[in-house]
Every structure is written in C-alpha cells, then in structure tokens.
Design a protein around this nucleic acid. Structure first.
Length: 598
RNA sequence: GGGGGCGUGGUGUAGUUGGCCUAACACGCGGCCCUGUCAAGGCCGAGACCGCGGGUUCGAAACCCGUCGCUCCCGCCA
C-alpha cells in the first residue's frame, strides 16, 4: 500500500503517530519557508506541512509540486498550534509534518478548476469527465447514489427479495420506445435489442416462482434526451407475485420513506403519501406528474361562466368545453409584456389564449372586464380565493387543452415565483390510469402503460364496448414534478393477454411471433403478479438537488447522445461491418438509392 | 423535425443603445519575496485577432445573414 491512512481520518487521537499518506495536491500555500499542502483523496483533506529546516529534501519536493500532482508523504501527526485549527475540516485539529515525500505522478494544469465548485461548461466537463469526477460535487453525488442503491439492496434483501440479472442482449419490441439494436454476426440480418426495461423477464421470473425479484437494471431507449432523460438509465426494477396494487404501493412507499430518513434525514416529507386518481390530478393540476410542493390548483368556474355573456367563455362551454382558472399570488402588477408571455405559454399548449384578471388595490383589471358583470367577476375572484395583489388566469376550451395550458402555466409560475420549498419531497401516488390511449395517427388504441398491464376488474366489461373508458391497474409514483416510477398489476391469464393484444391491433400471427413465449408461459401456472420500477437517476438527482440527471451519472451522454470523452458513437472498420453483414447508407446518399430520409 | 438561450485569455464572468475596447475583473498559470497558512499574502509578468464564415458601416465583441458547438424545451419517451 502506498498509504497507511487516508486523508479523511486523522484526528487529535493520532498525534505522535508516523503516517504515510498519498493523494492529489488539492491546494498549495508556499510561505517561502513553510509550505502547506491540502492533500486530497476520496476520503478527505489533510494538511501536510513541509519545513525546510527539519526536512530539506522533502521541502524541495513540496516546492516542485503543483495542483493535482499525485504525491506520497510520510510524516508525523502533530496537533496544530492553538488557534490554528481549521474547523471546516474533519482533520482540522492536526497536520502532518512531512519527513519524506515523493512525486508519484505530475499533472498538467487542468482545463478547469478542480478545487472549487464553480460552474463549468458542460461539454468541457464531459470531455474531461475523469477530472470533473474529482470535484466535490460529483464525488458527493456519486457517493449519495451508492448509498441509495446500497440501502435498496439491503432493505429488499431483508424482505425476501432476490436480485437477478437479466439479459442485455435481448429481443426487439417495436411497441414503445425505439430500440437500440445490436447486429448478430452468427445470424446474418438478425438483431438483438438492448432492453428498454426487463419487463418480460421479470414477469417470467414470477411464472418461474421467484415471487420477489429486484434488480438495479440498466435500461436503454433510443429517444431524444432531456434534463431527466438519458439514452441509458437505471431503474430499481422489482416484481412480486401474489400481490394486489396496494401491496406494491405500500412496499415501495415504506422503502422510500425509510430510504429518505436514512440517506437524507434533513429533507422534509409528508407521510403517508397523498394518493390521487389520474382524473383527479389532471383536474387539479393539469399534469399527471404535478409538483405538489405548492398549491395554485386549477379551479373549475364553468358553472359561473355558464351565465356569462363573454363570448370566449360562452363559446367554449357551448362546444362542450370548460372554463378553469388559477390564482397566481402577488402578480397583479405584471406588465402587458409579462402577461403576454403567459398567454403565449397557454397558446403553445393549444389554447386560443388566456384571460387575465389582475386584482389591484383600485379594482379588477382585465381585458375581459367590459364583457363581464361586476357580480360575475366577483364570483370568479371568490371561487379562486383571490386576494388583492393576485393575478387570476383563465382558460376556456376542451378539458384536455384547459388542463395542458393551465398545467403549463402553473409549472412555469411555480418555478418563476419559487413557490416550491427546495427542501421538501412531495411524494404522491397517481392511480387508475386509463388502459388505452387513442393513437389518431395510426387510428388504433395504444397501451397507456404497456401491453401487459391488467385492466381493473370493475372495468372489464367495457373492453369490448368502450376501450377508452377502461381504467388499468397501473400507478405512478411522482415527486416534485417528476415521474419517479411506473408500475402495474400484470395480466397473468393467457386469454386476457391475447384479448388485450388483439385490442392493441396485434393480430394473432404477430402475437405468436413477438409474444408467443409470454402467452405460452401463462399456460403453465402463472401467478397473479405486479411490480414497479423507480428511476434511480431521477430520484438521486432530486435528493442531490441537481436539475440534470447527468450530474448523478458517472459517464453520461450529452444532449446528442454522444460520449464526449470516449467519442462514442464512432465509425467502425469496414471489416467489422462486413463481419456483421452490414452496409452503411449515409443520409445524404439515400436519395440516390431512392430511399426516403428517416 | 421545430422553438428559445448561450458562445469574449486555461476557467468563470463584465462589456453587447456601434466609436472612450490598444477588450476589463476574479480565479488559474509563470517568476520573485515571504516560517502557521488554510479562498494564504505582496510585487512583477505572460496569456483572447471576442465560436467560425460572410455582409452593413468611416468604424463591429456589439448590427444583419449563414454556419458550427453546447444547452433548455416541444414533438418523441409502450
């Protein structure tokens, strides 16, 4: 070993000991005589002192080193002179008086500052990720991530779950997200796919009788990136047999409640978690993953507007629509430009506009005032609980448009006005999702969650008559405006599964080709089962107060799915392609082959 | 595929109603001084044709057009 102690463990109890430390030069303070170096390793910082009088050779080494040099020092732990302690440092009571030192490796001047947590261009951070990872921020985040995963493993293990790995090379399922494909060398023209999730495998493990399975599972989806979406990400994938919806929910709620108490005890959390139906959250928040750290709920005023002479409201209601509003605290003095901006947000979500009502000390100011009676205006104010100083926003349209528009405004204004307590974790369940969504483009029903989700028994009779009204045994876990997990109770009957496939427009032949193994498995004694899959990257990002999941992933991709450090994706040799029976047709030359651009 | 934001020494920013910019500040970097600092201090110094290309103008970091890169969002994410 190059070291006898780490840089994070020496205290006053170690005074007098001779120790050897090794690490990186975090910071160097050269007094001409004495040199102080904060030596860094993963475990902390220790101040080492070079004295030219007592150890001239070592002092010469101390003079030569620069930031980020890797050095090894041997010396004696001494108590710092009274008043010279550094209370910001765990090892601040002592320092190590160096008797011998050597440079293990020199370092170029780094492209950005390692010893400070200052914002650096993301592309530069990703290009030199191994340097970025040296910084305290990333070390903290990855350590937190480790603790989260460790807790999950231990907690589930203690409850009889076992962790089982499932294949990374598997089969393409064209439903859902785009697959990452891997060409087969042995089978010309055939491809594996990387898993979008271990969904089918975990269900088959239930058929196999494992009853309680989990996996820290990597999932890959070839879709465009966002701050909370990477092409590969990690889920706590879990599945249980002989359970109903509440069994899964209770278990996961217990797990996360205990987890937060353990790894982030300073965060506040409301327990038990709130529970909404899908219809309720859309009605109240205009989103299926609302940030519940603040109110500003969507309030229906259709009944008041029913008697209105205001054409915007009247026409929307006549067309079967609704009128809803939100009360934005303290924004009555918004300028025309600011309210126009808000109206643009509503328009971007398909609304024709938004009606503003500013509640100022001298009365109500609204572009719609001349169309509204004072009684009507007062009724709106009262319904929304508006106070002087508030700004009311109304949208009149079909329910989906109203929800989308006001939901977007609520989200934007919540962020702008900093309404959310950054220390709070507002967990909630959303249940009773619809089973199907109408795909207008393809003129068919799509699975809202996935095709293995079971319908609610109470809605089973609607499958043939009104698929759009069927609710599923599926549920989401949301937190602070993020969807943290989805899950469902699965289908375990062959007949029902085949029926759902058919409703999803998958004919019998394709059922056999794509999902024959699932249907067959259900013929061999499949138990009732269900589960869910919380996203670990998103959860850790929330705990770490990071806006982008990149900051809780060691080696993430940039927005164009590139690894700027490894330079992936990259060209491959012609031989490699030949071996895989592949030929590349670049987009610019597709036209000459008579192919459409993708 | 579409929309917004950003791009100025190694890093982070200022400058952006065209002229005082021969581009400022902090950190970092190099040298010298300095024996208790810990964001050490003091002095000196190097380092940027302002992402790139074109244009407007007597004059462009700034305005216009194009382009590239990064980023956020919409679409997409069973």
């Amino acid at each position: 070993m190059y070291k006898s102690k780490t840089c994070g463990e020496l205290t006053a109890r170690d005074v007098g000991k001779t120790v050897t430390l090794a690490g990186w030069v975090h910071r160097r303070r050269d007094h001409g005589g004495l040199i102080f170096i904060d030596l860094r390793d993963r475990f902390g910082l220790t101040q080492v002192v070079f004295n030219p009088q007592t150890a001239p050779d070592a002092h010469r080494v101390g003079s030569d080193v620069r930031n980020e040099y890797v050095i090894q020092v041997t010396g004696v732990v001494e108590k710092r002179p009274a008043g010279q302690e550094n209370h910001a440092l765990a090892t601040g009571e002592i320092d190590v008086h160096v008797t011998a030192a050597q440079i293990l490796n020199a370092a170029r001047v780094p492209p950005f500052v390692i010893n400070k947590n200052e914002d650096v261009d993301d592309a530069l951070r990703l290009t030199y990720r191994y340097l970025d990872l040296r910084r305290e921020r990333m070390l903290k985040n990855l350590t937190l991530r480790h603790r989260v995963v460790k807790f999950m493993r231990d907690w589930l293990d203690a409850r009889g779950f076992i962790e089982i790995e499932t294949p990374i090379l598997t089969k393409s399922t064209p439903e859902g997200a785009r697959d990452y494909l891997v060409p087969s060398r042995v089978h010309p023209g055939k491809f594996y796919a990387l898993p979008q999730s271990p969904q089918q495998f975990k269900q088959l493990l239930m058929v196999a009788g494992y009853e309680r399975y989990f996996q820290i599972a990597r999932c890959m989806r070839d879709e465009d990136l966002r701050a909370d979406r990477q092409p590969e990400f990690t889920q706590l994938d879990l599945e249980m047999a002989f359970v109903e919806q509440d069994d899964v929910l209770n278990l996961v709620e217990e797990l996360f409640t205990a987890l937060v108490k353990q790894v982030a005890p300073e965060r506040t959390m409301q327990t038990p978690w709130r529970k909404f139906t899908y219809d309720e959250v859309l009605d109240k928040y205009g989103s299926d993953k609302p940030d519940l750290r603040f109110g500003m709920e969507l309030t229906n005023v259709s009944d008041i507007a029913a008697n209105s002479q205001f054409a915007v409201f009247k026409n929307a209601l006549a067309a079967g629509g609704q009128v809803k509003g939100i009360c934005v605290p303290g924004c009555a003095d918004y300028s025309r430009r600011e309210t126009d901006e808000l109206i643009e947000i509503a328009k971007a979500k398909g609304a024709k506009g938004a009606v503003t009502m500013a509640l100022r000390a001298d009365g109500i100011h609204s572009p719609a005032s001349k169309h509204l009676t004072p009684e009507e205006q007062n009724a709106y104010v009262e319904r929304l609980g508006g106070q002087v100083g508030d700004l009311l926003l109304f949208v009149a349209d079909q329910p989906k448009v109203v929800g989308d528009a006001l939901g977007a405004l609520r989200k934007e204004l919540g962020a702008r006005l900093k309404l959310a307590d950054p220390n709070a974790l507002a967990f909630a369940w959303v249940v009773d999702f619809p089973m199907f969504e109408w795909n207008a483009e393809e003129a068919r029903w799509d699975a809202a969650h996935h095709p293995f989700t079971s319908p609610k028994p109470s809605d089973m009779h609607l499958l043939d008559t009104d698929p759009g009204a069927v609710r599923a045994n599926s549920y989401d876990m949301v937190c602070n405006g993020y969807e943290l997990a989805s899950g469902s109770i699965r289908i375990h009957s062959r007949e029902l599964q085949a029926k759902i496939f058919s409703l999803l427009n998958i004919d019998e032949e394709r059922q056999r080709a794509r999902f024959g193994h699932m249907l067959e498995a259900f013929e061999f004694g499949a138990p009732p089962h269900g589960g869910m899959a919380p996203g670990i990257d998103r959860f850790v990002a929330i705990l770490a107060s990071e806006d982008n999941i990149r900051d809780v992933i060691a080696f993430p991709k940039n927005q164009w799915a590139q690894d700027l450090m490894m330079h992936a994706p990259s060209d491959v040799d012609a031989d490699q392609l030949q071996l895989l029976h592949l030929q590349i047709v670049h987009p610019e030359s597709q036209a000459q082959y008579g192919l459409d651009k993708p």
